[in-house]
Design a binder for these strands. Structure first.
Lengths: 138, 138
DNA sequence: CTGATATGTAACCATCTGGTTACTAATGAC
DNA sequence: GTCATTAGTAACCAGATGGTTACATATCAG
């Protein structure tokens, strides 16, 4: 799953109205735009923008049927994130809250420090000031 | 999990830089702000804003230690969404892609229609027009 | 055809987002 | 104490987001 696709999915889900729309379409597949509008106080155009966002994220599919646009829920993107998380973070599901414990109790003096800080890039100044001295290594 | 909390989590995850930051902190718990900055070309202030967003979403915790702010990953919010999805959408994990098939093949004449369209709210006009006249006569 | 319904498009506006620079404050090393 | 380092705050800016109104098009019911 490309980062852009992921952005689209998370951003689409990052709005309560859109999550509600998703729930509604999931509950009544084949409904049209006005059906969705009936649930909200915002304008039809606003609803359509939400629908576009959800379609961009591929969380909804739609099909033109006469005057209507029929809407359907699509679980695939959620499934893909689900899969990523279950693999990516699977160890954490096992650990549960142990990371919190670590953060509070375990971290006193040790600093695991960096893993691969590549560029040491400098925006303007700020990092230029660092050139002279370096410490904390020996 | 409150809708606002959910918004915060999804919006925090809806940005590739923030997801990368999350990965970095997860890989090196206890790192400080400058450690994170070393991975990016953007300014430290921009990184801090991302860190604030992640802390708002409770995806990161931090602890002030001398000059440094030490950062730790927190899996709880992701775990909660994970749990919501596995229960909320569990049937869909079974169905897999059948909803797509339905959308393309199954939906021909039937319209499951609404489930509880409440208000029939009207923003300004648009829905007012549904009772009386029309204007498109010129 | 006439007119109502359903969707689509365009232009506008306020606020949020993600970035910047400039400056301030606290702490650690010598 | 002095000064570099780390973090925080404030003000600014371009572009995205989420909302609006006005208008346009397409289809369905007579």
């Amino acid at each position: 799953m490309t980062p852009d696709a992921m952005d689209a999915v998370f951003l689409a889900l990052g709005n309560a109205t859109r999550r509600r729309i998703l729930d509604i379409v999931k509950a009544s597949p084949g409904c049209n735009v006005n059906d969705i509008c009936a649930y909200f106080e915002i304008s039809r155009i606003a609803v359509m923008k939400h629908l576009h966002a959800l379609e961009d994220a591929k969380l909804l599919t739609s099909e033109k049927r006469g005057r209507d646009r029929r809407l359907y829920f699509n679980a695939v993107p959620i499934r893909m994130i689900y899969d990523r998380w279950t693999t990516e973070f699977s160890s954490l599901w096992a650990e549960r809250l142990t990371r919190i414990k670590y953060a509070v109790e375990g971290a006193s003096e040790t600093r695991p420090a960096e893993t691969k800080p590549s560029t040491r890039g400098s925006i303007k100044a700020e990092k230029q000031a660092k050139r002279g001295k370096r410490k904390r290594d020996g």
